[in-house]
Design a protein around this nucleic acid. Structure first.
Lengths: 349, 349
DNA sequence: TTGAAAGCGGTACCAG
DNA sequence: CTGGTACCGCTTTCAA
């Protein structure tokens, strides 16, 4: 618990020189710097956080608000929290958890407190009360997710529309004329911001590529295995030759189970692409092509944006969409033109 | 962003009076207090966090270290994080997340930083490197979980042994002569601290109550539904008339599914008790009796202990075990002494 | 390239 | 019951 003056004394320099040597905000002769670093090392000096917050301009802490609703998908959520923490630490920042029953109270507190330099908003809802609050407080706020009303806000997110469009486009180009979307449970379409975006773009892209599109939700409140299998079955019965999956890992497994029960092989009998999964689809019983939602990408960008608030100019408000990358695991094939193929085969024979 | 001197001026009192009025550490006349509170309200005053940390003795921040291993059960883990945050907020504390790849680096940093008043350790492993570190730093540390080597540490946890013993005892008293434990996947028995405690006490209690005990793990790395159903089946085939469940929510459902497939009714044909679940077992397809692990109870106690470090005396090192409560949902019945019952019934007929 | 010193915004001791 | 004020430990002018 050595203090800066002890370091200064040990190094035979003034307090300010120690400070500058450590922050690098002023040139320090090589020799002086070496002596200071040596003293710091020997005394195990570590600048007092409170003092830095008070004297300096920044606290080196980000707040992370996460409303933790009962229907939050824990693994996905945790991935985002972890990604945020990692991104923050990479920039020498710590993360303060704001899990207040009333998220707004927490945001207000740390804002008037000056406890944090910026607030990162997770698990954004279409109509999110934190939007109004963000406009009200003067602490920089970055949304990881896109609320309906996002005027003047700084938001980052995966480009769900582009991801969906690319998946549909690939299916269409592979000759699939009827594709199905295995979606989320119904309530997600009003509570979260991205499920509706995927669904809307699914239909838009389908019409753009002139293919027939069917959608099925996977339950009401929660995606049960039964709900997922039923949805899958209905889409198949309707004649889909390709499935777009937009649901949690467990549901992916349920879809694959249903396909297996029906003796449908991927991709020979049915093509499958996962949109915006947060887990590794190559680790599934049957690896699936995917346009993954990479939490680290969103969170890295969010932290970068939060930091630019301090480099003088605040970043231009607006939505930053992260372009999706396509991961090929061989679960998409040309349409199994079974009849004609059989005919052709027998013709050759 | 009003400061304390503005509040003082507005209320017509000195800075120190404002401070004391707010902290309550010195009596203030009712009238003065009222004027101060009014000024605070009107100016929207909120004491600067950094200044308080520097001048005061405490930072009002707890660090929460959570190693987030790949095999962490996300929902359970989140429940603990949330419970900790709630307990902290109730005491006017915030929670800083320490998810460093290297948990020790984070602990060391906030300790020498003086960024936090205490460190709460989650997800404790039997051999946890954070134990040695806790002894080395001078920031109060509370473990939520019990490591093997816990000399001199402050730990809180559910009394898994008592919970297991009570479950086994109830089964034995209900006449069950052969009981089975559906456990966790194998790796959990070396990575976590409580699965082994449950298993060991399971056998100890069984021998104490003179009943036969069987144990089955539910997979190697992860508890798959197949693994759970297989384990359940084997225990049933071995003749168990009562099952103790010590596994996540999904596995409970798998057990129930297996029982349903076998046309076994709970509790008529088979009794079931869940040990240390972190979810609501009454919401299962078939409500189950349980000795729940209540995160809030552990975390409340942990925070209380952390706070006592500041009331002058540090709490006596040692393990605080929270006594389990039995929740009766009618899934335990007297042994289905089928043969003799049938005989008796036919005799009457 | 380096040093001296004025804050940053509270807390809490010492007086009255 | 209330005021004055010396710090808390670091950052950052202002001077040299």
């Amino acid at each position: 618990m050595a203090k800066i003056d002890e370091v200064a004394k040990a190094a035979g320099v003034s307090i300010s020189t120690v400070s500058y040597a450590l922050s690098g905000k002023r040139p320090v002769s090589a020799d002086t710097r070496r002596r200071i670093e040596e003293a710091v090392e020997r005394l195990g000096y570590s600048p007092n956080a409170g003092a830095r917050m008070l004297a300096g301009r920044r606290t080196r802490i980000f707040a992370l608000t996460e409303p933790l609703r009962k229907d939050t998908h824990a693994p996905t959520h945790m991935a985002f929290v972890l990604a945020t923490a990692v991104a923050a630490r990479r920039n020498d920042y710590d993360v303060l958890l704001l899990t207040d029953e009333d998220a707004q109270a927490g945001m207000r507190r740390v804002a008037s407190n000056r406890l944090v330099d910026a607030i990162l908003v997770l698990d954004v809802a279409p109509e999110d009360p934190r939007v109004a609050l963000a406009r009200e407080i003067d602490t920089p706020t970055v949304f990881i997710g896109v609320p309906n009303d996002n005027d003047g806000l700084v938001c980052v997110d995966l480009d769900f529309e582009a991801a969906t469009r690319e998946a549909v486009g690939r299916m269409a180009r592979a000759g699939h004329a009827r594709i199905g979307l295995v979606g989320q449970p119904e309530v997600s379409y009003s509570r979260s911001n991205f499920p509706p975006r995927v669904r809307e773009e699914f239909f838009a892209a389908a019409s753009m590529f002139a293919v027939t599109a069917d959608f099925r939700a996977t339950g009401h409140e929660h995606a049960t295995d039964a709900g997922v299998r039923a949805a899958t079955g209905e889409l198949l019965d309707a004649g889909a030759t390709a499935l777009l999956l937009h649901c949690p890992e467990e549901s992916h497994r349920a879809v694959l189970a249903e396909l297996a029960d029906r003796r449908l092989r991927v991709p020979d009998d049915i093509s499958v692409i996962s949109v915006a999964p947060t887990f590794d689809t190559s680790a599934l019983p049957r690896p699936l092509d995917a346009l993954p939602l990479v939490p680290q990408a969103s969170c890295d960008l969010a932290v970068d944006l939060a930091l630019t608030f301090f480099d003088g100019d605040r970043p231009a408000p607006g939505i930053r969409l992260i372009p999706p990358a396509y991961l090929d695991h061989g679960s998409l094939a040309r349409v199994p033109d079974a009849p004609s193929a059989a005919v052709a085969a027998s013709a050759v024979a």
